[in-house]
Amino acid sequence: MAEIAYWEAIRRAHDEEMANNRMVIAMGEDIGVAGGTYKATLGLYDKYGEERVIDTPISENSYTGIGIGASMVGVRPIIEIMSINFALLALDTLVNAAAKIRYMSGGRAQCPIVMRTPGGTAHQLAAQHSARLARMFMSTSGLRVVTPRGPIDAYGMLKSAVRCNDPVIIIEHEQMYNLKEEVPDEEFFRPLEGAEIVREGSDITLIGYNFSVHLCLEAAKRLEADGINAEVLDLRVLKPLDRETIRKSVEKTHRVLIAEEDEAPVGVGAEIMALINEDCFFALDAQPVRIHAADVPVPYNARLEKAAIPSADDVYQGALKVMGKI
């Protein structure tokens, strides 16, 4: 057991999967000689060579397509997109091809690619580097979408994703790459389905994914001081959603808040609310609340940026509202 950072966990998963299977390759901008923008492939170019750790030109749509084509004949590519904003350029090959090839071939072809990309705001990166977009991928049939909240999932879900036969999008976060956690030394896998209760509680369920899980955990600590015992549920996986775990938790606490760093319209929170309405409406003792970003392009100015993006305090205040305390 050692404490390692999120980026080291991803690097370790790459290394182990590449050592395990020659068909596993990594590709993306600056991932080889430079070692990766967030060091996720550091040292692997020297270890596995330029044929397996491939520095691509800045052609997101087509290098994703090349990964997809290779995956159709048995290669297992891990494709890094430097920022989720740039993944918009790869939507044609990802959404129109990878997500649909199994279906439109009647199950005769498949595209087992992994696409990793950080989605989220960092510090004053402004509108074109702060997109989150989880909802766009989560609404696409034929994809799996996962959002590891820490090093254990970042490592274990990447390993599972490499072995899974479906296209898997792993949404990371620029503010989490240095986050540390104790990770077992021996090899393990984390499943690509299932939400997780990361803090047990009885009074309210705080639902988050990716970075917003940490906002929920921080808010839960403050609520405890107020005598409110919050349960924190990490969705972990946006597609397919684990309705059962959400339902059980809401039926236990009868109150729920959903926190997301994305904008609200047609978003993850909107979908969760719809599921709660369908699955456990009568279990609710209060109106659910969504905490989310303002519906604006993310501003550069630090004060405006802070106002646009939800904080742990926003989650805390939102929870008080659900509890009827404000």
Binding site: M23, I25, E51, N61, S62, Y63, T64, G65, I66, G67, I68, G69, A70, S71, M72, V73, G74, V75, D92, T93, N96, A97, I101, M104, S105, A109
Partner: peptide, 23 residues
């Protein structure tokens, strides 16, 4: 390996098939 409706999409897919052969 398929017919595709998106004009131009098979270019990269084909290069990927070729990358697979080479690999």
């Amino acid at each position: 390996m398929g017919g595709y409706a998106l004009v131009g999409q098979p270019f990269p897919l084909a290069a990927g098939l070729a990358m697979g052969c080479k690999h």
